[in-house]
Design a protein around this nucleic acid. Structure first.
Lengths: 237, 237
DNA sequence: ACCTTATGACAACACCGTTGACCTGTGAAG
DNA sequence: CTTCACAGGTCAACGGTGTTGTCATAAGGT
């Protein structure tokens, strides 16, 4: 049973399922994404996906060796969508800023999928394309190889990490999300100055600040540091 | 069955299990942490935990309403441990750097707990204590309230985001983790210069860099930016 | 038109979290 | 010292999960 999966390119026989659906890698990934968005991350299971597709669950194992493979395919599709929407201008800093914000926005647009896939290295088409593109932007700007890789690594990790963190809140069930928002307004804002002087003194700022994402600030920080480094390099450091 | 859980303080009757173990909230949390450490993240299940404790799995529901409650208790314990192990010296930058690295390391040591709890605001004892402490460090250093909160937000989000991201890999089942490690060495390092010139040119650096975490670098970036801002403020900005 | 075989279906396995019902020893009250 | 309510343990079951070995059949190259 170990080698049941046939690569997409080699597939020929398009045999419909009992319910008349013709399966394909793309259809499965699309359906999985829809399932996650509509019914939550926990709604994604082989059996449910099979039901949603109109196919026996075990049929999916003809396309993906195990659930993890499917997750990677989903992650890659998300990367691809982000990349296709991005329009580089040739100005490395503006382009990377735009891409970072798009990655973050993309994660927020598919919070449940983002949470599940942000930390995976897919090694698939779109991911490879993204790596190649970003490295190209950096090397084109004049970063030496080692430096380009360092910036790339920081940039990508940052976008993924914040994307997942901020998505996670969005992905919480409504009541839990509201409850969390209240914690700052009630629990923290209600602490006594006698026992918690620093929280009490800054409560107003805390409530306001913790509502938003700190990603844009962190991204600009990273890009500024990279720009500074690039200037040093150009000056012949 | 809805209100089976008796608060720890109100517990009186210490009836041993069939195997002679006397259960308690602390013992359960400790055993869960040990289980994660010794047998990997996937080893934590109610049934396995019950077996490890020498108790029926359903007994645990006398102490925690569901698995998520248990996870939060574990997370709280982790925050407590990190905070207790931290020895502030009075130098804000060194202290925050040390704390950030400890938070990150704590997450990596207990990946599953970190992944599940990074995006939750618990409002529990240790979390409040952590907020108060960090704000104290920043205000003590001379950051005005609004600025202190901004730095606090960035600092905490960053530690949590990277902690979760880096943990997530550790939390993967063994085979998936090994597979990911290989992707950089095989898939990426094997790409042709003709089709992927930038990856091919930097493959050596990529393999080396992507192995480690970019958190320490990001942390230093954040602290440097904060120090710069503080200098401006002190200069009477 | 045949034959191979890709691909779908089925049934089964071992695990999971959770719950309702039951049983028993603890520890406080009289 | 005995009594007895009930906290806290156990048991069995439910419906879910991923995964696989086996079988059936229709697609498509010859």
């Amino acid at each position: 049973m170990s080698e049941r999966v046939v690569p997409a390119a080699a597939r020929r026989r398009r045999r419909p399922t009992k319910e008349g659906v013709v399966l394909s890698e793309e259809l499965i990934v699309e359906t999985a994404l829809r399932l996650i968005e509509e019914h939550g991350a926990e709604a994604l299971s082989v059996r449910r996906l099979g039901r949603a597709l109109g196919a026996d669950p075990s049929s999916l194992y003809r396309y993906f060796r195990h659930t993890d493979d499917l997750m990677l395919a989903i992650a890659d599709e998300l990367i691809g969508r982000t990349l296709r929407a991005w329009r580089p201008t040739g100005h490395w800093r503006a382009d990377l800023r735009d891409l970072g914000l798009r990655m973050h926005a993309g994660a927020l647009a598919h919070p449940r999928a983002a949470v599940l896939s942000a930390h995976r290295v897919t090694g698939r088409t779109y991911e490879i394309q993204a790596v190649e593109t970003i490295l190209g932007v950096l090397r084109g700007a004049g970063f030496p190889d080692a430096e380009a890789v360092r910036v790339y690594h920081a940039f990508v990790d940052q976008a993924l990490a914040y994307g997942a963190l901020d998505s996670a809140n969005t992905a919480l069930p409504r009541p839990a999300r509201d409850a969390e928002a209240d914690v700052w307004r009630t629990t923290y804002a209600g602490l006594s100055a006698a026992t918690h002087p620093h929280i009490a003194a800054t409560a107003r700022h805390l409530v306001a600040s913790m509502r938003g994402s700190s990603y844009p600030a962190a991204l600009d920080l990273l890009l500024t540091a990279a720009a500074t480094r690039l200037a040093e390099i150009r000056a012949g450091d």
